[in-house]
Design a protein around this nucleic acid. Structure first.
Lengths: 106, 106
DNA sequence: TCCATACATCGATATCTTTCGACATATCGT
DNA sequence: ACGATATGTCGAAAGATATCGATGTATGGA
């Protein structure tokens, strides 16, 4: 019986491959610093330095994290003078973060 | 000005450390096979072999993934004869998965 | 122009994850 | 007890990620 097609359950649409992008984005989100950054940015814009100070890491390290989040389309940035303000670009982050917070911060 | 406490924004409660557990659990979820498994299990119970076949990986590999998901408290298991049925143990997975699906599977 | 500030980039190292296969355990039917 | 099936465990190699520091770029003020 090679590659059986027997089904005892109804199966949802899609397959493993359909979750490749989701997994990549979730992995990007799955870091304490990056979760905190998203939480902060959902309340307003912050600069790299402000975020770095809140998370108690070096500015260059924060810059690395922000680049990863931006690569997934989660964040946008805008330069103002010598500062760069970051903000949320992906609307789905709000409900998703609400789920995460309701499970882990209560 | 060492470790400035100047605040220009209101800040949400918590800090980076508060997201350590959340990050660990999200990282566990952030894998194509494990996301598919959660999607399937939200519709009913499955055995290791059924899940492995759907995801096209070896049974032992699926067993590894299931162990990781169980370590986070996401899954429960119950033996029936020589088979082991897995199911969802963490209620928060349903809304969280709904967020993921609405963003990435549409 | 020169200096300081703010941010970004890059490479090296350390650490974690994934994947695979060999082996182990457990149950059922005969 | 024996063999077949279903699941679980484990270690090693490969691959991905994190972290840090040095350096690079850009802006504003004097």
């Amino acid at each position: 019986m090679p590659t059986s097609t027997t089904r005892k359950h109804k199966k949802p649409p899609g397959n493993v491959a359909a979750f490749a992008d989701a997994a990549e984005c979730l992995r990007t989100l799955a870091h304490p610093v990056r979760l905190r950054v998203v939480q902060l940015l959902l309340l307003g814009r912050y600069t790299v330095g402000e975020l770095a100070e809140d998370c108690e890491i070096a500015n260059s390290a924060m810059s690395d994290h922000l680049r990863l989040l931006q690569r997934c389309g989660f964040l946008s940035s805008e330069r103002d003078g010598r500062r760069v303000y970051y903000g949320i670009a992906e609307p789905h982050l709000k409900p998703l973060m609400a789920c995460v917070e309701s499970r882990f911060l209560s």
